[in-house]
Simulated assay, not measured.
Amino acid sequence: MASLTDRVRGNGRIAAGLLLNLLASICIVFLNKWIYVRYGFPNMSLTLVHFVVTWLGLYVCQKLDIFAPKSLPPSKLLLLALSFCGFVVFTNLSLQNNTIGTYQLAKAMTTPVIIVIQTLCYKKTFSIKIQLTLIPITLGVILNSYYDVKFNFLGMVFAALGVLVTSLYQVWVGAKQHELQVNSMQLLYYQAPMSSAMLLVAVPFFEPVFGEGGIFGPWSVSALLMVLLSGVIAFMVNLSIYWIIGNTSPVTYLQRYVEFELL
């Protein structure tokens, strides 16, 4: 009876995590699109804000004793931090250059790519049922791209890069949590500032920093509030991604995402 109760509680926590991630993901997609269209806030700068707010959120959680930091070697997190930058930057560029529908549908291709990576690199096997689900996903993305009246070649390039980097990132998140024996907060607590530092160095080469259109430009109060809200929601998305993958698998996380695409 005790084991059954534990399983029910565990499944309930996973369901709650999936629901939180679903709601936060929906919110941040529409909010970021609004920020790009309404205010023209630069992409990489917005990503940098997301990373900084994520780290600050985790710092507050650590001070409240919600989790205990664990010392980790930076060399073990370097690729993960770099892929985190690419994951968010390319998906945001895809959102900026595609319609929301195309952006969401393209992300569904992350599931097949993750399965390919785990099969080839980690020798994992998947059931025939899971493999068969890849057929309608792939066909749907191809058909949407072909018949999209607002087809954008640059947008599709960003979408493809986003899918590839996102797939690598999500596989590595699960692998690193098990390799380093850390939970989602402990891993993200060290990885987020590393990713922030990387973007802080890169932003001046691609976007203005001061003046019109720069991260420290003359933005309206409403724009700054929307950017800050986006950062808070990004914190929820990032933390829930780590937690879900750490407690299930990258494929489980992506199955939730595909269900969202089909709604």
Rank of each mutant, 00 (worst) to 15 (best):
P42M: 08
I215S: 08
K63H: 09
G155S: 10
P204C: 05
I115N: 00
V53R: 10
I233D: 10
G162D: 00
L31V: 10
L164E: 07
G10L: 10
P73R: 02
S145Q: 10
C61E: 10
P204E: 07
L199H: 00
E212D: 11
G217L: 00
N144F: 12
S71P: 11
G10P: 05
I115M: 01
L19D: 05
S145K: 06
T133I: 06
S3F: 13
N97I: 04
G57V: 03
Y36I: 05
I215P: 07
P136H: 05
L82M: 12
I28H: 07
L200A: 07
L239N: 11
I233S: 08
I215C: 06
I241G: 04
M44R: 13
L78N: 09
R38G: 05
F235W: 12
V251K: 04
L143Y: 04
S240D: 12
L56Y: 06
I233Y: 14
I128N: 10
Y103A: 00
L20S: 07
A202T: 10
Q191Y: 11
S230K: 04
Y189N: 04
A234Q: 09
I137F: 03
F84K: 02
S184A: 11
I128A: 14
P69R: 05
L180Y: 05
Y122A: 13
L239S: 09
A16V: 02
L64P: 01
L188G: 03
D65V: 13
L139W: 00
L161I: 01
P112A: 01
P73F: 01
L46A: 05
A108M: 08
T252Y: 08
I115P: 00
R13M: 09
Q118P: 08
L79R: 06
R13N: 12
V157S: 05
T91K: 03
M1F: 12
L72F: 01
T125M: 11
C61H: 13
V141E: 06
I135F: 02
L31I: 05
T138F: 00
V173S: 03
G174N: 04
I245C: 11
Q104L: 15
H50E: 15
Q191P: 07
V251P: 02
I130G: 01
N43R: 13
S195L: 00
A192V: 06
W34G: 13
I14D: 04
D148N: 10
Y59R: 14
A24N: 04
L263H: 09
P69C: 03
V89G: 02
L64F: 11
G57A: 11
M198R: 00
V53K: 02
G155H: 05
N11A: 12
G140M: 07
L20D: 00
S71Y: 12
P250C: 08
T166Y: 08
I142A: 08
